[in-house]
């Protein structure tokens, strides 16, 4: 079992680590990361990421897929600790930029001090002054 930090979740997943590559089962990638392997490529919503057909071995191996390679194709950042026990699947700047440039306020879900989660989108219909502060 390794720890995968993906979007806003921290997951424990069985993985195969080969050198600097994180291989996860197609089932876990679908159920835990939300990406589905189809004949067109790795898909989420209406987006599919095809892989080079002459390099299939680097992306697919029976029921496992090379998440590091697919994330790299999408310009997303993949980082891990020295022991390769903790992996971070981060966003790329192109997806962050595209979202901001569209002026659609990126949604998030965060807890209040009682541990109750609130999403920005729960408050659609109100004008929102979203501001930050810190203790430090």
């Amino acid at each position: 079992m390794i720890t995968v930090i993906h979007e806003h979740k921290t997951l424990n997943i069985d993985a195969q680590i080969k050198e600097d590559n994180l291989w996860l089962s197609i089932k876990d990638v679908e159920q835990k990361l939300g990406w589905t392997m189809k004949s067109e490529g790795l898909c989420q919503d209406d987006q599919c990421i095809p892989y080079p057909s002459d390099m299939e071995d680097e992306f697919l191996n029976k029921d496992h897929i090379n998440v590091s390679k697919f994330w790299g194709l999408m310009g997303k950042h993949v980082l891990h600790d020295e022991m390769k026990e903790t992996w971070l699947l981060g966003a790329g700047h192109k997806e962050r930029s595209a979202k901001l440039a569209s002026l659609d306020a990126p949604d998030f879900s965060l807890p209040d001090i009682d541990g109750q989660f609130h999403s920005l989108s729960d408050y659609r219909g109100k004008r929102i002054f979203l501001t930050t502060w810190s203790s430090w």
Partner: peptide, 23 residues
């Protein structure tokens, strides 16, 4: 994550979001 999503670099940084979820 809010600093990451909204490209914020300091506190207090703020964004105005309208009724339709637009910045």
């Amino acid at each position: 994550q809010v600093a990451d999503l909204y490209n914020m670099v300091n506190v207090p940084n703020a964004v105005w979001i309208d009724e339709f979820g637009k910045i």
